[in-house]
Amino acid sequence: MTLTPDAGDKEAVVQFAQALEIEGRSLWKDAGIRFMKNRAAVASLIILALMGLAVLVGPLLSPHSYDAMDWSAMTVPPTLENSHWFGTDALGRDLFVRILAGGRISFMVGLLGALVAVVIGILFGAVAGYTGGRVDSMMMRVLEILQSFPFMFLVILMVTLFGQSLMLIFIAIGAVSWLEMARIVRGQTISLKSREFVEAALVCGSRQTAVIVRHIVPNILGIVVIYASLLVPGMILFESFLSFLGLGVQEPMTSWGALVNEGAQSMDVAAWQLILPAGFLTVTLFCFNYIGDGMRDALDTKDR
């Protein structure tokens, strides 16, 4: 055995190095692998996927439609007869179909609302925190004003001026829920920007915007993801609060929030009307939370 590698060995090493280069794992890919190792998160993802599927195709399985009233079966507990598998509500409408149909709305509101909040929140918070000084304090004033703003008026105003639509609910929800996000992002940014790698980037001549987008934002994604996972249930609940005020989704359409709201009013006499939609709601929200946790752990860039 010789210590000097022969030509063939050399070639193999070069090839291996090239292969490494090609398959060099990115931060995100790494995160993906770590995420897949988290059982709770993966299970949640599967459940959510199933839930999504059920919400999309489930209503087709039932002979009932979400808005048809069955006068002969009002407030009927879950039964296999009449194919009212989940029972009916006070007006004899099939809960199975209504829960799944309501799920569509809730999913949409939750995801889109959170997305709006996250995007605006990150940008606003990161810019404020990173720039600091006068700009920061001005942006924080804006935030304070908005935060102490009676948004209920804003929502009522929007709904009455532009009519009641689902799109508007997203905008309304997104518009009022990025504030906390922005605040948290700003807090994180302030503590990040004094870190060495940011200084290093600046010394290397990176532009400010590039520093924010490339270095600050990825590093606060962990906390953002956790917070976003708190936002999704928040969005879904906020939608029900809007429904409660009469600004939510229009009947006969429904949402989980609205169904739970209705069910809560008769929980002692018609428990299934609360338990079933609340079950769907809580399982979904739990899943979002576990996925959030999983993503946080996976995205954690610090050495472990």
Partner: peptide, 13 residues
């Protein structure tokens, strides 16, 4: 987490 996933209008009543 029950506190997050359970709406207050369910929890309180």
């Amino acid at each position: 987490m029950t506190g997050i996933v359970l709406p207050s209008f369910v929890l309180a009543p």
